[in-house]
Computed example of a mutant assay.
Amino acid sequence: MIPFVDLKTQYASIKPEVDAAIQRTLETCLFTLGDEVAAFEKEFAAYSQAAFGAGVNTGTSALHLGLLAAGIGPGDEVITSPFTFVATVAAIYYTGATPVLVDIDPATYTIDPAQIEAAITPATKAIIPIHLYGQPADMDPIIAIARKHGLTVLEDACQAHGAEYKGKRVGAIGDMAAFSFYPGKNLGAYGEGGMLTTDNAKHNRAVRMLRDWGAERRYHHELKGYNYRLEGLQGSVLRVKLRYLDLWTERRRAIAARYDTMFAGTGLPTPFVRSDVRHVYHIYAIRTPDRASWQEALNTQGIQSGIHYPIPVHLLPAYADLGYRQGQFPHAERAAAEVLSLPMFAEFTEQQQDVVVAAVKELQASV
């Protein structure tokens, strides 16, 4: 079986360092926040070219608290894309605000800046551009629109650790950015984890309070907060893995480039990459209208694949109350019906990739 992601092989490659880091945490017994989390916050913020980092328990929590720090609440509207993991929209709901959706650019799958301004109303307070699959959204026009209308920009960078837009790291382009350290991410914890990065000291203070029951001192609750703290064990693991992130990212980029080269001339739609970004390839997604049969055929040959994401948010039953209808976001809907994610992880061998490519080429040749 060729896995979609191989966390066991990754762990084996760094086992002595990870085990030692975990042992340190076990010995200090600092299991919630603590020194390892504090150190990781500083290291990851610096890596993301941001002044501050606040560790939380999930990327979803980072989105939620970022919106709250910006003052988003009931009666407000937040603009984002329907082609995303459901957490992006769920976080908006958590604040009591209303998600307002805008279609994607059909080439990059990120929010189409040309459609944002038409969606702005007097209730609009923020924009959440999603750096989907590891490719940054087109941030310059998004920032310009936000500044024109006095809106907060909260980057959903949950799939884009280390990605760059015009030479600047995501995480320090908008007012704030949310990252996820779910195990399968480019930088993944051994459990759940997230981070909110920002250059704004007030936003950082608010998030740090909100994640810990709204208090800076124990039992002195200034805000109505949450139990969103990052665990010490996750901080210790993530510190080790952060040291390898650029190495792993370059491996992903090399694997993606090899995919591109090997699929050249087949007519297969492969990822479009903007010339002014550093794509970090959390996902390598091809497209086919025959996705179900292709995925079944690959699975039969022992090749795992994924779908990110099969249903755009506006067509999910849980979010029918948004009031959108099928056909309203045609680019998102078509992408959701056709994208197929191929194996992509830093430890992926050329021999494994050769098997995957040969199988996909055979399927494409039969179209």
Rank of each mutant, 00 (worst) to 15 (best):
G191I: 06
G232T: 09
A292S: 14
H203K: 09
H203D: 12
G194R: 06
R252L: 13
H282S: 12
N186F: 03
I303S: 01
I173L: 14
F272R: 04
V273P: 03
M262F: 01
L245F: 10
G232K: 08
N227L: 06
Q301Y: 05
W248K: 04
T261N: 10
S305D: 01
W294I: 07
S180A: 11
P271Y: 02
Y309V: 14
G194P: 06
R239V: 03
M209Y: 08
W294K: 01
L298Q: 02
R239L: 14
V240A: 09
Y259W: 10
S275Y: 03
A285F: 06
M195N: 12
G267W: 00
R217K: 15
G184K: 12
Y309G: 10
G214H: 06
Y259R: 02
W248N: 07
G191T: 04
W248C: 08
W294P: 00
P271T: 08
A257Y: 11
M176A: 14
S236A: 15
T288N: 08
T270N: 07
P183W: 13
K241N: 11
N204Y: 10
W248Y: 13
P271L: 01
L268T: 01
H308P: 04
V207E: 06
A172M: 05
I283F: 06
R278K: 11
L187E: 07
G225V: 07
M176D: 07
W294F: 14
L196M: 15
Y182H: 14
E192T: 14
K185M: 15
Q301I: 01
A172N: 15
H282K: 05
A177K: 00
S236W: 08
T249A: 09
G191C: 08
H308A: 08
T266W: 00
N299K: 13
D175V: 08
V280P: 04
H279Y: 15
H308F: 12
E250H: 14
R211S: 09
L210E: 00
N200A: 07
D199C: 12
F181W: 05
I311Q: 14
I307Q: 09
K185S: 12
Y284T: 04
Q304L: 09
A292W: 11
L230N: 02
G232L: 13
Q301D: 04
Y228T: 00
I303D: 00
M209G: 07
G193I: 03
L196K: 07
R217V: 13
I311M: 15
D260H: 06
G267P: 02
Y219R: 15
E222L: 12
A178E: 04
T197R: 01
R211N: 09
H203I: 12
V313C: 05
G267Y: 04
Y259V: 03
Y228M: 11
